[in-house]
């Protein structure tokens, strides 16, 4: 028992009234993390994901309790300002200081040239050190911002949809980089994201927030996969067309960026265009069913 208590590093239990887009709601989150965890936070936009991150960073006030490594960041009596919390925060728009070049952006956080050089070299952007943010591409800005967030050697790294503005290739590359940094610097990370593949690839824990409350909690490997016991694979897609070919019906399903044709045996009338379905493989046949 004692050992698990010691391993328990981050304890977050916060409440805050939010004035949402549609109606007021209450954000209620209870999260426990161990050192080295990578938590993905997903959910619809406006569900309170970013607010949760900002509360943890101390950029917004809330009721409740946040304890990190035995140090109280937030409770009834105490509110540790963002300056004193050992966090790295990656903003959605990167928030690089336009008046400083890449190197200066890093050194502003922590005047440690050796660390700055190491981080930039690890991200393969050391040659950009004298450039100003305005002359960098999205992917480059993103890397600089990640390096800057790591300059303080944070106990907790907070990422707000870090890869949403990048093309798939760059996203893939930076996901690998983040994964590498996470291990190399022994980080504990919380990342807001929409992408299931990102969660699957990077996170070992995930929560889904809906209207301010946690509706799903668990291991991404179990929570994300749709396969039922006997299915070999299961893909989620949307029916974009149902056409009649001779005597059978064929559904055209969009799965990610690909279109596939699937023969609907006799249940053609059950499906409609625009419906979300799961395409799976059972024994030797391709199977299609509605998404629950």
């Amino acid at each position: 028992m004692k050992k698990t208590k010691e391993n328990l590093m981050i304890f977050i239990d916060v409440r805050k009234k939010l004035h949402g887009v549609y109606k007021d709601m209450e954000l209620k989150c209870n999260i426990e993390l161990k050192k080295g965890d990578f938590l993905a936070v997903c959910g619809e936009s406006g569900s309170g994901k970013t607010t949760l991150l900002r509360i943890i960073a101390g950029l917004e006030r809330a009721e409740g309790r946040i304890v990190v490594d035995g140090e109280v960041w937030l409770d009834k009596k105490c509110f540790l300002p963002p300056q004193k919390r050992e966090i790295g925060f990656l903003f959605q728009n990167y928030a690089l200081f336009p008046n400083m070049n890449v190197m200066q952006n890093l050194l502003y956080v922590n005047n440690d040239e050796k660390l700055a050089k190491k981080l930039l070299e690890m991200s393969e952007i050391y040659e950009l050190k004298d450039r100003y943010p305005a002359s960098l591409s999205g992917g480059q800005k993103q890397r600089v911002a990640l390096c800057r967030a790591l300059m303080k050697k944070p106990k907790l790294l907070l990422l707000d949809e870090p890869f949403s503005a990048l093309d798939p290739k760059m996203r893939e590359k930076l996901q690998n980089e983040l994964s590498y940094f996470h291990k190399e610097f022994d980080l504990t990370t919380i990342m807001v994201t929409h992408s299931p593949s990102e969660i699957y690839k990077l996170a070992n824990k995930m929560i889904e927030i809906k209207k301010g409350e946690i509706v799903k909690k668990g291991n991404p490997k179990e929570a994300l996969l749709n396969t039922k016991s006997s299915e070999k694979f299961a893909l989620e897609g949307i029916i974009i067309d149902i056409k009649k070919v001779d005597v059978i019906y064929v559904a055209v399903v969009a799965i990610g960026n690909n279109l596939v044709e699937i023969v609907l045996s006799n249940e053609a009338k059950e499906f409609k265009t625009g419906e979300k379905v799961i395409v799976s493989n059972k024994a030797f046949s391709v199977n299609i069913r509605k998404k629950e």
Binding site: A57, G58, L59, P81, P82, Q83, K84, R85, I87, G88, F89, F91, N93, A95, L96, F97, P98, Y108, V109, N110, R148, M151, K152
Partner: peptide, 15 residues
């Protein structure tokens, strides 16, 4: 001025 610049500075530990 982009407010996240100010927040980024606070998070970096600056007064």
């Amino acid at each position: 001025l982009d407010k996240s610049l100010i927040e980024a500075s606070y998070v970096s530990g600056k007064s």
